[in-house]
Write a protein that binds this DNA or RNA. Structure first.
Lengths: 394, 394
DNA sequence: TTCCCTTTGTTTATTCACTAGACAAACTTT
DNA sequence: AAAGTTTGTCTAGTGAATAAACAAAGGGAA
């Protein structure tokens, strides 16, 4: 059944609206908030005074007069609390400490070779502890920990993590962190987090229909539909890496045939490189070779762009009619060599209307897409749950 | 900017909630509504009396006592108004007259050979007029006309229809109908409407993540995500018929290569049939041949199922992690021969988690999926806009 | 039958959040 | 200095929901 509506809900929503307005347009006066939101001046005054009591916003000095009494400017109190946000990769862990506006205060990357669960968890705990110590004193302290992971998070049966690329199955990461740290924990797929990061802090801030393709060892896709992250029934949407693009193609480890990521990923590139005599090369080395003008390297990257743009991304454009497609993760370093191929393929292959609507970009946050997405999740849920507490208390 | 919240909104939402409850659980008493929704008995009483004044609900007689005073049962007044809902196909127009619960009172199909815009519009107007005459007298009369069309509806620049399969481009259908009939008009893609029809009245009533594949001359897909129809940025989502499934495949008329609908549609089947000596055959004839045990026909249908299930629908399952995939339109007549192939392919090719979540069904409404979807749109918007009028008046 | 208990639906008093408008403070312009 | 503006607070009033009392209409047992 749907929710019932009463005055408590009205107040909660209006308060959230005022806070959101301050967040977006700070510094801003009470009078301007009233005008922008359509709320009455008195209502805004009363809600703002509660927000100040809760330390969520601050009065800074007075602003410029526009012919009358000077306005008192309000600021978001972005140092009322901090988030710890993690990108758990297959070779390294990236952790950042952010304030409530998503400013990064502290950052650390830890490399590892041993994928063993206990080993990696130990490093993860160490990293979290270090970031926690780095947090300044504040009203709310650490408001949550978010971890982006290279795999699926099953939300039934209590958030269990499955990460084949890490060799992990059924790790109850969320539960483990909840027990160790008494703060809200969010665990989310790396591509989903990346999509949200680009939407909130990156190149997608103006788009509400955005597809983020994380092209790394495999391909993961995060979907922002109608301004919100779309997870599917149980969080397994976006397995576009395992979309068939060659119906009788090679067999993938997923059991399907002709999967996109067999043709257009780091894995695919390195396999091709092996054939062309680049033994045990890395993506960076191939990009350097291309920069040095080696035809083989340039061609390999262009072909990768063909497979990315001409098939997978064209399909994405047809399926979702998105406003924006953002590409991120490790293949971003080859931008210079793959983008022209991608753009050309989309120009040639995509249907007119869908093609004209879409804007294609490389990630703006680069290595930070995932951590910033996790920070956004944590911050958003902090503001929402604080609102709910207030309602039930009053 | 977001919406501001006040008591008017609260009342409007609660009234909608009460009406929704009556719609779903009729016959139901005021006391039960209060218990189900969590609203106060007095509140429910007052809202119900307004709904009765507006003729949207009725008191029927008293129900059975459960040890005290007998309850007065409330019913939805489904004959307070009627919708005219149309499925504009490439060879025929199907029109129905429905009441506010979606019961079909009158139905007519008109065939045509000449795709000329004026010609078809003339037939459409005639059909609408006939259905309008058939509507009984009622409080609100015809509350809206909805037309499902075989093409895209561009919502910018005032709802222009593009229907390549009809040979139409840039027909302002919505505007034409608005001028001729002074009631709310909805024009929507046939697959989108079919998806909503199955969600509201068909086999998808319990699912909120549903993908509807309309397999006819081409393939169109309607997406129900998070319980709502997903249209993409400008209404062009769901062009999955033009998803590449063979990267170096045949060129499609859309300009892309290896599109799904080249392998798995009526068009594809008939082309194959031609090769196998079934000259100028129809789908029905091939199904009859299969029923008569002709191996060629059986094999062609099985192969069609392979392409449907093993590639396209498997991709859908990986992309969306849906709760349900529903197939409809003309190919439904071949259900018996294609379903086993589809199911087998999905079993073999789809990734475990996504596969286990999904349920595969043929359309329940069959030829009526699209018209019922249009009826659902019209009815829903009637109830919503009536609510808004009330708010601005009071 | 009669009396008591239940259940339903209405009525009344109260609460709560928002709005309109008055007002004071602080500033600019003439 | 006087007049007009803008900001922010305060007060009275309104509308919608809730809680609780109450009336109406039933059932069940002695």
């Amino acid at each position: 059944m749907s929710q019932t509506w009463n005055q408590h809900v009205v107040k909660k929503e209006n308060k959230a609206l005022v806070l959101e307005t301050i967040k977006e347009k700070a510094p801003i006066s009470r009078a301007s908030i009233a005008q922008v939101t359509g709320l009455n001046k008195g209502t805004v005054s009363s809600l703002v005074s509660e927000l100040i009591d809760e330390k969520l916003t601050n009065e800074s000095g007075t602003g410029e007069s526009s012919g009358g009494r000077r306005p008192v400017m309000l600021l978001l109190n972005e140092t009322a609390g901090y988030t710890i946000s993690i990108d758990l990769g297959v070779k390294s862990i990236l952790g950042v400490l952010t304030d409530l506006r998503g400013n990064i205060l502290h950052e650390k990357r830890t490399l590892f070779n041993n994928n063993n669960v206990e080993e990696v968890l130990h490093l993860l705990y160490k990293l979290i502890d270090e970031l926690g110590v780095a947090a300044p004193d504040s009203e709310y302290g650490i408001v949550g920990i978010g971890v982006g992971v290279p795999g699926g998070v099953v939300t039934t049966e209590g958030e269990i993590l499955l990460a084949p690329n890490l060799g992990w199955k059924k790790v109850p990461l969320s539960q483990l962190l909840s027990e160790k740290y008494q703060v809200p924990i969010t665990v989310e797929n790396e591509a989903n987090a990346g999509a949200y990061g680009e939407k909130v802090y990156g190149v997608g801030q103006l788009s509400s229909e955005l597809v983020y393709a994380s092209v790394g060892i495999g391909i993961g896709v995060g979907l922002i539909l109608d301004g919100k992250l779309y997870r599917g029934l149980r969080g397994f949407s976006g397995e576009l890496g395992h979309m068939t693009i060659e119906k009788d193609g090679a067999v993938c480890r997923c059991g399907n045939k002709g999967c996109w990521e067999l043709y257009a990923s780091e894995q695919a590139l390195l396999k091709q490189a092996e054939k062309n005599g680049y033994v045990n090369a890395t993506v960076e080395e191939i990009v350097i070779a291309a920069n040095n003008g080696e035809a083989n390297a340039i061609n390999m990257l262009a072909q990768l762009g063909d497979y990315l743009g001409g098939v997978g991304i064209t399909n994405i454009i047809h399926i979702f009619n998105p406003e924006q497609v953002v590409m991120g993760n490790t293949l971003q370093s080859a931008e210079k060599f793959i983008m022209p191929a991608i753009e050309k393929r989309i120009e040639n292959n995509a249907i007119g209307f869908n093609k004209n609507d879409v804007q294609l970009n490389m990630s703006k946050l680069k290595k930070h897409s995932t951590v910033m997405g996790m920070a956004a999740f944590t911050i958003e849920s902090f503001y929402i749950t604080r609102g709910n507490e207030r309602v039930t208390i009053s």
